[in-house]
Amino acid sequence: MAGDNDNTNTAVEAVGGGDGKKVSRRAFVVGSGAALAGGALATTAHAAAQTTEAPKIQKAVYPRSTKYLVYDSMHCAGCLGCMLACSLVHEGVTSLSLSRIQVHRSVLSKYPLDMQQNVCRQCPDPLCVDNCPTGAAHVSAENGNIRMIDEAKCIGCQTCIKSCPQLPHRTIWNPAKKKSTKCDLCVNTPFYNKKGGPGGAQACVEACPRNALKVVDEMPDQADHRGVAQNDTAGYDRNLQPPAPKMPFGFGPGAKPKGKTGAKPGAKPDAKPDGAPDAKPAPEGKPAASAAPAN
């Protein structure tokens, strides 16, 4: 599907498309996490985690989004600057919970399994749109076919959240407003000093100090999309780093690693600057599944 110029998708592709053969980094995380689920201690003061219902079968055919937010989890610093920028320009506050891009890091886990960046995929077959009973979740023709939620029409039923096939879901609940919301690539940003949206700027991309976010035109590979869990490695999680400059004094990616355990930044043999449409293969020396985060 990636690179396909046909601007529509069919129901069949949406639920079962792709070759399904690639085992992604993400699949490791999910797999090992599931194995540990039974061992997790019962929640104490906190309410149980929200569950995600299985997505429904796609009913309609939608035009594809013209823009997609992609990311580079191997170079993300986990600074959460993108999240704070997102909530700032949309809501006028900084908030980790209201951000429509979600980054979280398990600081005691091994690289690269320590990082998760969860962005809205602007799905070719948007179940959030498809299942919304009021039309609040819609494909916005005037904004490059971005999947958006019209706050005025949202009745807070959370159907779009339950429908999101990604884990964790990318549609966001705003408990204060009792409305759902989602990434609109900065179309509705009353607190932004720039014009956002498909032809404009995106606050998260601007804020990122590590070149770990980018908006691209071409639909990323959806191959691993199974509708039950995020497998973003396929097309969204990619190397976005510019070619490494020559650094003086032995610093930088060109430098020889120090000793046996010296970091080997940028050591991915597949490292291609952005624009590379193909999926990011597993990193070299990928840790075994047992090295996945413990909780």
Binding site: T43, H46, A47, A48, A49, Q50, Q116, P168, N295
Partner: peptide
């Protein structure tokens, strides 16, 4: 730290965590 995270019942990267006042994906 790992033990306190375990006590919350929240697993890294799995699903939104519902607390009294709001939601989060952080630990």
């Amino acid at each position: 730290q790992e033990e306190i995270w375990k006590r919350t019942g929240v697993r890294f990267g799995q699903e939104w965590w519902k607390l009294d006042g709001g939601y989060s994906l952080q630990r």
